[in-house]
Amino acid sequence: MRFEVETGEGTSVTDITDEVSGAVPTGRNGTVSVFVPHTTAGVVVNEAEPRLEADIARFAGGMVPDAEWHHDEIDDNARAHLASMVLGRDVTLPVMDGALDIGRYQSVLLVDCDGPRVRNVDVV
Rank of each mutant, 00 (worst) to 15 (best):
P116G: 09
W69E: 12
E9M: 15
T40Q: 07
G103H: 14
F59E: 04
E68R: 14
E68P: 13
H81S: 06
D75Q: 14
E47F: 13
D122Q: 10
E6D: 08
L109A: 07
F59Y: 11
V44D: 00
S21G: 08
E9G: 08
A23M: 02
G27C: 11
N29R: 10
E68V: 10
N120D: 12
I56S: 07
L109P: 05
R104K: 11
R117E: 02
Y105A: 09
L110P: 00
G98T: 09
F35C: 00
F35W: 10
L52K: 02
M96C: 14
T14R: 10
V34M: 01
T14Q: 04
A83G: 05
G10Q: 10
E68N: 11
H70W: 15
A41L: 10
M85L: 13
M85G: 02
C113K: 07
V45G: 00
V91Y: 02
P37D: 11
A41F: 03
A48I: 03
M1W: 09
V43D: 00
G103Y: 12
T7C: 08
I16K: 04
E73V: 15
G30C: 08
G62F: 11
D112G: 06
I74Q: 02
M63H: 13
V91M: 02
A80I: 13
A67I: 11
P116K: 09
D18P: 02
V123G: 00
V5F: 10
R2L: 01
A67T: 14
N29W: 14
N120E: 15
G103V: 07
R119K: 10
T11W: 03
G27H: 13
P65M: 09
S33I: 01
T92Y: 02
E49Y: 11
M96V: 15
H71M: 11
T39I: 14
T11Y: 02
E4V: 15
V108N: 00
T14N: 06
R79C: 03
L109N: 04
V24H: 15
S33P: 01
N29I: 12
C113F: 03
D72G: 09
R2N: 05
M85D: 09
T31P: 04
V124Y: 06
V45M: 05
G27E: 03
D18H: 10
Q106I: 08
T7Y: 05
N46L: 06
C113N: 05
E4Q: 07
G61C: 08
H71E: 09
D72F: 12
T26N: 07
V121S: 01
V43P: 00
N29A: 11
N77I: 10
V64W: 08
T92E: 13
E4S: 11
T31Q: 10
V86K: 07
R28M: 15
V121Y: 01
D18S: 11
V24D: 03
E47S: 08
V32G: 00
C113E: 02
D101N: 09
E4H: 08
A80P: 12
R51D: 02
D114M: 08
G98I: 10
E68D: 14
Y105M: 14
R89H: 10
M85K: 10
V44G: 01
D101P: 03
T39N: 13
A54M: 05
G115R: 13
A60P: 00
T14S: 04
E19H: 15
V36L: 06
I74W: 07
E19N: 15
T7M: 07
V13N: 03
E68M: 08
H71G: 12
